[in-house]
Design a protein around this nucleic acid. Sequence first.
DNA 1: TCAAAAACATGACAACAATCATCATTCTCA
DNA 2: TGAGAATGATGATTGTTGTCATGTTTTTGA
Lengths: 237, 237
Amino acid sequence: MAVKIKNTPCQLCLSRKFSMFAGLSEQHLCSLSDSKNFISHKKGQILFYENTKPLGIFCINEGVVKVFKTASNGKEQIIRLAKKGDFLGYTSLIGEDVYSTTATIVEDAQICFVPKETFLNVLAEDMNFHTRITQALCKDLGIMESKLTDATQKSIRERLALTLLKLGDSYGVDGGEKQKIDITLTREEIAGLVGTATETVIRLLSEFKKDSLIDLQGKKIIILDKKGLARLSDFYG
Amino acid sequence: MAVKIKNTPCQLCLSRKFSMFAGLSEQHLCSLSDSKNFISHKKGQILFYENTKPLGIFCINEGVVKVFKTASNGKEQIIRLAKKGDFLGYTSLIGEDVYSTTATIVEDAQICFVPKETFLNVLAEDMNFHTRITQALCKDLGIMESKLTDATQKSIRERLALTLLKLGDSYGVDGGEKQKIDITLTREEIAGLVGTATETVIRLLSEFKKDSLIDLQGKKIIILDKKGLARLSDFYG
DNA sequence: TCAAAAACATGACAACAATCATCATTCTCA
DNA sequence: TGAGAATGATGATTGTTGTCATGTTTTTGA
């Protein structure tokens, strides 16, 4: 269950320093510290549900959260995986809308909840912060445009290869050609990232392994041939 | 060819009043008027290319513009159709990035170009405008999340039905059950919107016609059975 | 206005990927 | 720790959709 354990002041928070909250004034940091709520979450717990009203934003201090939409066929399309330093739920809050997605914990997480009023106040008062948010939104839109294009124009094999490379970028240990993707995702979740059926992911991963593009170490995936995957992800056939 | 014909002051511009530039101060409107460039564009002309640097933003006064990405297979994925009152290119400008898309004229257009400096200056000085931009970005992100989910989880038939309904919302005349989509798009462009092959669109449109869901009047599509299309777009089968 | 180009239409075919079914393996917690 | 659940794996089958080919209709511009 979700447990509130401590309340480190935001001033001392390490993950904040790599987040969009870096550069806030002392006054705003105090305001955040006073109103925030630090909560530990276990894998599988739900942060918020699609179509409910946002009451604040979530700042990830540690852990991984999947943000997804549930399609009319019941399958989950994962929009993104959020990790340390990422914010969740602010688009719905700013857009004055209900959550467009559901967010659940993928790897045990420590997350701060910042109430709506505090966040919107900082947004209104700190012009630089507002600009950082706006820029992040613009970048995210560009990413979504690419994702949409990939989704409609690439084959599943290409998209899976691309997904593995992106996971390598975000969660890879060892920078070189060989790279361990250090995050535990089920085949179903990978399917949700790619936008395909679980069986298809399983089959393609077996194929990639047979072709020495990847290796499977328990639940984790090792990228063996980054260039090979890149080649596979870029072209048709 | 693109022709500069006149330079109506922004203060008097009707399409501005329904755009995000509504509510600007007299001073900022003057600044816009002084620096903008009003240009007529013919169908097929290109406003900007993917991967080039933005020098300003485009405000559509009249006409329709398609904004698309070119996939690695050469096909165009249309991200959105922009019309009167819409802005183009500001996400790349604000995000300090190259254009993520190409924009070309679909229906003869009259478009104002506002140079980077002017736009960024208004953005920096008018807090309310900045907020409107940020809110629009948040809404757009929500739309893209839905599009991505539809792209991966719905069949082409469903997506085409959905696309027709959306086109009806944006370009439909006659509000009722029967609705003429008053925009000229080629089958290839509809395919680009849906994210499929041109032949598939042609086949499905024939099928929809046979099923009395739509009618084809020259190049234009008449929606005959909105409920039928909605049913088709929501569920699997 | 007429020839060339573009757009539309349809058929045949192949391939990709979803679904269903079955079974093995791993994980979880009572 | 052991039973049940969840996850992973694989085969068989089917349907959808993309591709290629061909022909018709419409549009465009010299």
